[in-house]
Design a binder for these strands. Structure first.
Lengths: 182, 182
DNA sequence: CACGATACGGAGCACATGTTCCGTTTGTCA
DNA sequence: TGACAAACGGAACATGTGCTCCGTATCGTG
């Protein structure tokens, strides 16, 4: 038997409320806050998701899908460095705007990650491999290093300062290998 | 009237327990855990410190004094870049070993900081000014940027990876301005 | 040694937050 | 439209943690 119409609607509302609450407050956002933003009761959330962890994973899956668009764009770039650096800047922007992504990488360490997140990591690895082949990216770097290096765009108080784009450029400078012209 | 002998001893024990607990578990370490490590009751902690915030500030003050030694060493260096980069590496090491320092920068934003911490920031600024004068440090960087850039040494799960020293070198590469020989 | 002041310990309270449970409401279908 | 299953809301419970309070233990002095 299919879900009732109101159940379908409410499930979507819960996901939207969760995305909004987690983006603003991080994974620590109370379930009650998610319920408030979704306009539903707490009980409704727990009917659709077994626990808060499942809700976090569902949101992670969704946000990862959005980030995957940046991977596509990076692979479409002709220049491997432009691809990698563009992806890095775009992910930094996403991290700065969505506090939840901050906590997501930690979450991934504890649980079987959302499927889209794994695809995001793999796609990032592809972009990195291409840069390595072109010899423009510091050796030894892989996709697992990206979240750590994005940490500079994390801390809310510094995001307010709007200085994180500078930090991103510093790191990109440090990651780039200059190819001598010949 | 002076403190009683046991009170003096216990105050020191509390500070040691707090340093240990906060270093391992971060500022979130429960007060009860501090009491356990100190070998005292919870009540004793609250006799010596009005609240947990005061305890955090006392520990911050102490750890800042240790870090100040690195500032002295940096200023004693002849080469401004060696001084700055040495300080940066040393602070990264401290951050990696003491989870509490991670939270300290946030704490500073909320409260009047410990006096030693202000001196640490000022000393770091001196080291940075010297590097700017020599033209070897990327313009626009100041002492407030250092904790943000050290964020790569923060996250516990990445500290375990032992990859943070690589990240520190990447950032230093990005911060350095190469002075052409003439 | 005795006694008063000082300090100690930890039970218990206040509050925040994840989760459950059940009386009430709503959607669906005959 | 009526009736039943499905879904809802939020009070209540469980747990973790900061902090208070007071009966008990200890220190230091005469």
């Amino acid at each position: 038997m299919a879900l009732r119409a109101d159940a379908v609607r409410n499930r979507e509302r819960v996901l939207e409320g969760a995305r909004s609450a987690f983006a603003d407050l991080g994974a620590d956002a109370p379930v009650e806050e998610v319920a408030r933003r979704a306009g539903v009761g707490i009980g409704t959330i727990y009917r659709h998701f077994p626990d808060k962890e499942a809700l976090l994973l569902a949101v992670l899956d969704h946000q990862s899908q959005l980030c995957l668009a940046w991977v596509e764009a990076a692979l479409a770039e002709d220049d491997p460095w432009a691809g990698f650096s563009g992806l890095f800047r775009a992910l930094a922007q996403e991290f700065a705007e969505d506090r939840f992504l901050i906590d997501a990488a930690r979450l991934r360490r504890r649980t079987d990650a959302a499927e889209s997140y794994l695809r995001l990591v793999q796609g990032t690895q592809d972009v990195i491999d291409r840069a390595h082949l072109a010899g423009v990216l510091r050796p030894g770097i892989d996709a697992d290093d990206v979240p750590a290096l994005l940490a500079v765009a994390w801390e809310p108080s510094w995001v307010e300062d709007e200085r994180w784009p500078t930090y991103v450029e510093i790191i990109l400078d440090g990651l780039r290998v200059d190819v001598p012209l010949r």
